[in-house]
Design a binder for these strands. Structure first.
Lengths: 204, 204
DNA sequence: TGAAACGTCGAACATCTATTCAAAATTTTA
DNA sequence: TAAAATTTTGAATAGATGTTCGACGTTTCA
């Protein structure tokens, strides 16, 4: 009868601690990437925010790119969750409005949406493909929502590709100017964007 | 009576040739920056497109940053020109529509608008301040146009800051996805954006 | 056409930064 | 509390790239 053959795995306590540390690193990295971009951010920059040297990061991630990659993965997971939730809404205008508001929230509240605004070209070829696929899925869903709205007569006929680029541009650009300490509060941005961007589509 | 004391200046012919070469360099740099971002673009990348070595570039620009800076300067000059032209339009909706359409054209036709979408933090402190000031001037003008429209009752009351961020985000993001060979043509994008983004503001 | 101006090259340099690794410090665990 | 596991460190390495500079072609122009 086989026994657990590999070395004894870490205790739940240790595993949890490690998970938390990884989260801290990702959060510090996210903020740095957002401010200065991936290439202009050094591992020392990230490590400094954690009170540690850059070499310590290698105990949690194999290299710099994988930090960026995991940032991306989390964002995409968040968007998948949004899409899932949005499917419950019947009215196209409501669904689109919901998606915009929630996407903005993801960009501002946790900053977790930001990676989507980063340059994808910094990722390895395979990771790039994966991220682009997921992003395309999201874009398609948005386009479909707009096209549904047009079919229903809720929205006027528009080029859905162009409309989606406008919406995603507005949202992704948030990563460039939003500062949590600033005068604009997150909810205000979400509501404003939803009104502005959905309002521009509705039939009059 | 003082005579021209310094060394004889280059002939108009030579000066013109040099000007053209600088333009070529700036254009090659612009495209590279757009694709991969400033930091991921090497001087060799830029030089390769011109069939020379990176060291040749130093005859035209003192360093890499100054190439980026001049890209920015040209974009900003272009925006100043737009603002000047737009002042002739009385109706706020028309003025805003014009600005959006023309800004999109600047982003797509010559790609000259792209630098505004680049990370400003790559510039030196002084250049950064200058670019930010010019950008702020543009943003203020857009805000004012929206506020005027609200006063006139053309637009509904909105947070003009939020609205301007949405508009500029949509436009700047073009630098990330637009490819001249792609299926979306420039005019189509400009018209679509103008309709979508102005339409979201008009009172109903 | 030939001297002067101009543009490009190649080598060399300096710096920066991602990454490796063995040793030291710290924390966990029994 | 002491051995084991884990985390961090500091030194060292390697590769990339911005930049300098003198030599070598090429172009301009009188």
């Amino acid at each position: 009868m086989p026994v657990p053959s590999d070395t004894n795995s870490p205790s739940p306590y240790v595993r949890e601690k490690r998970r938390k540390r990884r989260d801290e690193i990702l959060h510090a990295a996210l903020q740095a990437f957002r401010r200065n971009g991936y290439h202009a951010t050094t591992l020392e920059d990230i490590a400094r925010h954690l009170g540690v040297r850059s070499t310590a990061l290698y105990h949690y991630f194999p290299d710099k790119e994988s930090i960026l990659y995991e940032c991306h993965q989390r964002s995409l997971a968040e968007l998948d969750r949004l899409m899932e939730e949005a499917r419950g809404l019947d009215c196209s205008a409501e669904r689109l409005s919901f998606l915009i508001r929630e996407h903005v929230r993801v960009m501002t509240d946790t900053l977790d949406g930001s990676p989507l605004a980063f340059e994808v070209t910094a990722l390895s070829e395979e990771h790039q493909q994966e991220v682009i696929s997921a992003r395309d899925r999201y874009e398609r869903e948005l386009r479909r929502t707009i096209e549904d709205g047009t079919s229903d007569g809720e929205f006027r006929p528009v080029n859905s590709k162009v409309a989606v680029f406008a919406i995603l541009g507005a949202i992704n650009w948030i990563a460039r100017w939003y500062r949590p300490e600033g005068s604009l509060h997150a909810a205000e941005i979400g509501a404003g964007f939803a009104d502005h961007l959905v309002g521009g589509l509705v039939a009059r």
